[in-house]
């Protein structure tokens, strides 16, 4: 009797998780960093792939496909061709907003399905250790006398986070931002050598690119764009502490194709929330000097819309906005 009961129970259990024929996902997922191998977006894709594997979160494997062309526009353009499908995820950054504003792509926020924001990197102003600038206040004071007196170096073509990190504090300090001198270099590595070599007076870029040289005492950060002081650089003041009302994060997030099926959206929202809570993810972030900035889809969407309004205004001031079609 007991045996029979056990047997029927076992049978019942075996039958219980009977997969409905369309249990999502049924095929591998394309994970598309909107950047080339070696860059930050690529790194995020590899980290996601690794953590899903290590924490056994993956029901189906990822295939990482880099689509960095067109300043990341290629990734979004590809996603649009997959409208209504559920097997593509792109990893992108605030370029999805900036590129649409400056008019290099016609695809806007409406053409993507935000799944989750994963990380944020904060931006710094940084000078060489022997620079006369001891504080960001010194730099601002000089700019107030003459906005064109200092050449800022950034690591990518404007408009971009590096660039906004010059414009926003200057604007908040009442400086004529149209007269600022911002010189762009091809990549963070290029910029780093220019600051270390003393060619660029003040660099504006994200922290991870320069942290090794900051730790070694060769570079001095002046201000950080985070809402509060960072554990990693306790001595560096935030803009708010300096009396400048600026907060700026270089985030990376996951997006699905437009009109992604509800089921797929919910699946990935849950999976990425799980991933963000794992130890492997936290360890991977720490190793790469990235900040956990997980935000679920709804919050992510709201902040994207808020950022879009702010960026539109800034680019308008700079005359970088694409003419309305």
């Amino acid at each position: 009797m007991v045996h029979r009961l056990a047997l029927s129970l076992a049978l019942l259990l075996a039958a219980l998780p009977a997969p409905s024929p369309a249990a999502y996902p049924t095929q591998p997922i394309e994970l598309i960093p909107a950047g080339d191998p070696g860059g930050g977006l690529d790194l995020h894709a590899r980290m996601v792939e690794m953590v899903f594997q290590q924490e056994k979160l993956a029901d189906k494997p990822f295939t990482v496909i880099n689509k960095g062309a067109g300043g990341g526009n290629a990734a979004t353009a590809y996603m649009v061709t997959k409208k209504g499908e559920g097997y593509q995820l792109q990893i992108n950054t605030n370029r999805v907003l900036l590129n649409a504003l400056k008019g290099t792509t016609k695809h806007t926020l409406k053409d993507m399905t935000p799944i989750a924001r994963l990380t944020a990197e904060y931006e710094i102003w940084v000078v060489r250790a022997d620079s006369p600038f001891k504080s960001a206040r010194d730099v601002i004071a000089r700019l107030k006398e003459n906005p064109a007196s200092i050449a800022f170096g950034i690591g990518t073509a404007p408009p971009a986070t590096d660039h906004l990190n010059v414009i926003m504090p200057a604007k908040a300090s009442g400086i004529d931002v149209t007269r600022l001198k911002v010189v762009a270099f091809r990549g963070a590595g290029d910029l780093a050598t220019q600051i270390l070599g003393g060619h660029v007076a003040v660099g504006s870029t994200s922290i991870s690119e320069l942290i090794a040289n900051i730790d070694a005492g060769k570079l001095r950060p002046l201000a950080v764009s985070a809402p509060h002081r960072l554990e990693r650089m306790k001595e560096v003041p935030t803009w708010k502490e300096l009396g400048v009302d600026v907060e700026l994060a270089h985030w990376r997030g996951v997006f699905g194709p437009p009109e992604m099926p509800r089921e797929a959206q919910e699946y990935w929202q849950k999976k990425f929330a799980q991933m963000a809570g794992t130890r492997s993810w936290k360890e991977a972030l720490a190793k790469n000097e990235l900040m956990d900035a997980f935000a679920p889809a709804e919050q992510f969407q709201k902040e994207l819309e808020r950022d879009n309004v702010q960026f539109r205004e800034l680019l308008g001031t700079l005359g970088m906005l694409a003419p309305a079609p």
């Binding site: 070696g38 590595g189 090794a212 190793k287």
Partner: peptide
């Protein structure tokens, strides 16, 4: 210097970082 100046060395850097 911890600075990659080419695509390949940039990838190598991310590998080094991965290992802490």
């Amino acid at each position: 210097l911890g600075i990659p100046l080419s695509g390949t060395t940039a990838v190598l850097l991310s590998v080094l970082l991965m290992y802490g």
